[in-house]
């Protein structure tokens, strides 16, 4: 049993399970947020951890960092037990929560970084070197003396990442790091993370709803659905499993019922009572033009876009395929 322990994995879980008692009216119900997760992540890997909202991603991260106690199973992060060894673990892990700031709202970025350096007991030399590196790589220079509350979302996220990485953690966990960012900010952030990994051999675990993050950053993907591991492998493998799915979004002149009976396309969702509909099609079997022609036979199309499948659709497809 213990043979795997301390064998150098950065994350190692075995049957990791977390249940919550939730109140449903007057009854109490048991909700299994994470269900028997067994995963092993080696040093230097970059792993995309994806799943729909409520699939169990945050719960997993909280168990990995010692915030939540597992109901069952084992977990080792950086070779440590997260709950009893939390304080030692905190020196080796950096976490960026998209929604929960680690910075001091009313203080300039520079001062937040100084305090965090003290919190992680960095020596003066370590602090100066690392701060200089992060300021340069994340281009923080222009707003170092601006209070955090005055930063734009993109600037704030860069500052958050600097705060989480200041103590040079071996493992960096990013929870939705690019949510709400514009294209350019996303691009910069991804480039920084690629560089950080190359320079320091940092292990990355990131949750995201953005397939672009996964494509650019991750060489391994874990898909979690209803608390269970639904896929573990690389991106091409995921595409094969899911099929080369693309999505055609059509804006129609008049609301029509869901376009379900189209040849070579499946209806995903409708908005505004049917004015906008999303249709999935297999790029290997048909083309966007053919699907569009089929739609035009039933309604007048005002506008259209072709998009890559989003995470929710991918998960849904995996779920459907595994049945």
């Amino acid at each position: 049993m213990n043979s795997a322990v301390g064998s150098g994995a950065i994350i190692e879980t075995d049957g990791l399970t977390r249940e919550f008692r939730v109140r449903d009216g007057r009854r109490k119900r048991l909700l299994t947020a994470v269900d028997g997760l067994t995963v092993r992540v080696e040093p230097g890997e970059a792993v995309g951890y994806i799943g729909a909202n409520g699939a169990g991603k945050s719960t997993t991260i909280k168990m990995l960092t010692g915030i939540l106690v597992p109901t069952a199973g084992r977990v080792l992060t950086c070779g440590l037990r997260p709950v009893p060894d939390r304080r030692r673990l905190a020196r080796q892990v950096g976490v960026v929560f998209g929604q929960r700031s680690q910075l001091w709202w009313d203080l300039p970025v520079r001062e937040s970084l100084r305090i965090l350096a003290a919190i992680h007991m960095l020596s003066r030399a370590e602090e100066n070197d690392r701060t200089a590196e992060l300021v340069e790589q994340l281009e923080l220079g222009e707003f170092l003396s601006v209070p955090v509350r005055q930063l734009s979302l993109g600037q704030r996220m860069r500052a958050e990442i600097a705060a989480a990485l200041l103590h040079s953690p071996r493992l960096v966990i990013l929870d939705e790091p690019t949510i709400g960012l514009d294209v350019l900010s996303k691009q910069r952030l991804r480039e920084f993370l690629i560089g950080e990994r190359r320079r320091h051999g940092t292990t990355l675990l990131l949750t995201t709803h953005d397939m672009g993050d996964v494509e650019r950053l991750c060489d391994r993907i874990l898909v979690i659905d209803h608390g269970r591991l639904a896929y573990d492998g690389d991106l091409p493998g995921l595409s094969r499993t899911v099929g080369a799915q693309r999505v055609l979004v059509v804006d129609l002149a008049e609301p029509v019922p869901d376009l379900t009976g189209l040849d070579g396309a499946t209806h995903l969702s409708s908005q505004a009572g049917g004015l906008r509909q999303r249709l999935a099609f297999d790029a290997e079997k048909t083309t966007a033009a053919k699907v569009l022609a089929a739609v035009s036979g039933q309604a007048e199309v005002l506008d259209l876009t072709v998009e890559e499948p989003d995470i929710e659709d991918v998960v849904r497809r995996i779920y459907a395929a595994s049945r």
Binding site: T65, R87, A90, V93, G94, Q99, R100, S101, I119
Partner: peptide, 13 residues
Amino acid sequence: AGTLDVFYLRPQP
């Protein structure tokens, strides 16, 4: 706000 979690990520009680 869930911000107590941030305190867990630092190496002090």
